[in-house]
């Protein structure tokens, strides 16, 4: 029995055996680290930050859900909606604003969209014509947009109703203006589903996934320690590999001297 034990102990003491088994067990993690590291080194070329992940399971894992504050306004043939900070004209992403969307209307072949302190003018295709703010004479604290009885654009602001000229370049305080205000409505279910997918899909970039794979965070709180272990194992492999090489060199030299 003791005769069998001796070689096994010697085996376990052998750096070569440890090097082999640790190398095998770390191989998968090293592959992940090396591949993701290479990808991250070329983020810009691979455009990782502009590619988004649409996988529902992954999006759920990251807790990317629809925002609570969806606001939507109907136009004649489509909808303008705000999802969190993102704005959509129908299914088209037209930009972002942290201000609350207050309404939209068609005027002179333009879409006039009201936010709390800005008015955006858009082409019917959703291209930005101009953003009007306080510098352009927009009254402070807008809370509604509408059209007057005479067909002029009006906004309800902190100090009353303001009416714009035809080019929307000047705004006059006109308290007595009879105005029909734009009201929000609920998005149709089909468009809501489509936008939900688009909104969630824009929330998780490929770069985020690769980064989390590289750091191990994608596997939860213990994933970081798994990757830490992989790094420690790689350090061991580098040391044990050098050690094995050195020992072999010394042995070969001794053997040559004896001969």
């Amino acid at each position: 029995m003791s005769q069998h034990k001796k070689p096994r102990i010697r085996k376990l003491r052998s750096m070569y055996i440890w090097h082999r088994y640790i190398g095998l067990s770390a191989a998968v993690l090293v592959l992940i680290l090396a591949t993701t590291g290479l990808m991250l080194n070329h983020t810009e070329k691979l455009q990782l930050d502009s590619h988004y992940v649409n996988n529902d399971w992954l999006l759920d894992q990251y807790g990317i859900h629809a925002p609570n504050n969806i606001r939507s306004y109907p136009l004649s043939d489509r909808w303008l909606s705000q999802w969190g900070e993102r704005l959509f004209l129908g299914p088209i992403d037209i930009g972002e604003s942290d201000e609350k969307l207050l309404g939209v209307l068609f005027y002179n072949d333009m879409l006039v969209m009201a936010l709390k302190s800005e008015i955006w003018l858009l082409t019917p295709a959703g291209e930005l014509i101009e953003k009007l703010g306080p510098n352009e004479g927009i009254p402070p604290a807008i809370n509604a947009i509408g059209i007057t009885k005479d067909g002029q654009v009006a906004v309800m602001a902190a100090h009353g109703i303001y009416i714009a000229d035809q080019d929307l370049t000047t705004w006059q305080n006109t308290p007595a203006a009879i105005t029909t205000w734009v009201d929000s409505e609920k998005l149709p279910a089909a468009l809501r589903q489509r936008l939900l997918k688009k909104y969630r899909g824009h929330g998780l970039s490929l770069e985020r996934i690769i980064l989390d794979l590289h750091s191990g965070r994608i596997f939860g709180q213990y994933g970081i320690y798994v990757m830490d272990t992989a790094a420690v194992l790689m350090l061991f492999l580098a040391t044990s590999g050098s050690w094995i090489w050195l020992i072999r060199q010394l042995r070969d030299r001794q053997r040559r001297r004896k001969q």
């Binding site: 082409t123 014509i129 101009e130």
Partner: peptide, 10 residues
Amino acid sequence: QHKPSRLRIR
């Protein structure tokens, strides 16, 4: 050297 960000300038 890029598309203008707006279509109307004051």
